[in-house]
Design a protein around this nucleic acid. Sequence first.
DNA 1: AGGCAGGTTGACGTGTGCGTCAAGCAATGA
DNA 2: TCATTGCTTGACGCACACGTCAACCTGCCT
Lengths: 133, 133
Amino acid sequence: MSSQTYSISDLARELDITTRAIRFYEEQGLLSPERRGQERIYSPRDKVSLKLILRGKRIGFSLAECRELIELYDPTSGNQKQLHSMLAKIAERREQLEQQLLDIEQMKLELDTAEERCIQALEQTIKGEEIAQ
Amino acid sequence: MSSQTYSISDLARELDITTRAIRFYEEQGLLSPERRGQERIYSPRDKVSLKLILRGKRIGFSLAECRELIELYDPTSGNQKQLHSMLAKIAERREQLEQQLLDIEQMKLELDTAEERCIQALEQTIKGEEIAQ
DNA sequence: AGGCAGGTTGACGTGTGCGTCAAGCAATGA
DNA sequence: TCATTGCTTGACGCACACGTCAACCTGCCT
């Protein structure tokens, strides 16, 4: 049961992104796949990182922020100072996520009122057309 | 009780953005403040729109998406077709927000495990130092 | 009259996140 | 042997979201 590997286009297909994007993420230090000669060979771990990137992007994280997340997720045993700064970054991210939750709740409320008004406007339109007949 | 108004720098200070950004949002059609001569005069409504923009940005919306939200929020009585497309857009946004909620929950879980590993690594470090003493 | 604070319109610059060629290597099948 | 498929590295281009001048107007204070 040798650990599974993927080609760049495997991942591109599966995650619905372009190979260009994947290479760009590597350029930016978010990935560092193995090589077989020139070819990039991706591990399941790389795939997890890619999914993390995509999730991050969906909620508006920059690639730099995604890279930090990946580094946090890494079992990179750093020194004590680094570990403390990692914990601080984790706390920061958590706060950001909480703010985003609030923002999303607020947005949902606004969509509710927008929808109501939309429906009311539609009812008015229909009434107008009935009268016009 | 005349309705309150704001200068561009009033809003910039209060919302902690630059005047340049505010003008840019206007350029992109997200705002259309009154004028007194050359000067822009902002209404409470404009301020609401600005807050909506900032909320949108925090959860990764593009300015174009924010503009759509503002338009949805507007009591712009359109024709029936427009109203239906507005309802469709609202439904779309809601789906997107739900996805983002899932993404955020997942991120929080990942931060949890990252934190755990971080703490464990710290404990190891401390133990090592105790032995070294 | 002079000067400053605050506003205005360009216009160009910048960082991010890729898209889009171009040119080339490497294995594979007809 | 030749062509196709899939991968590679540049290198340039581009849209977005502003930052950063420059030059100018305008009201108000002294």
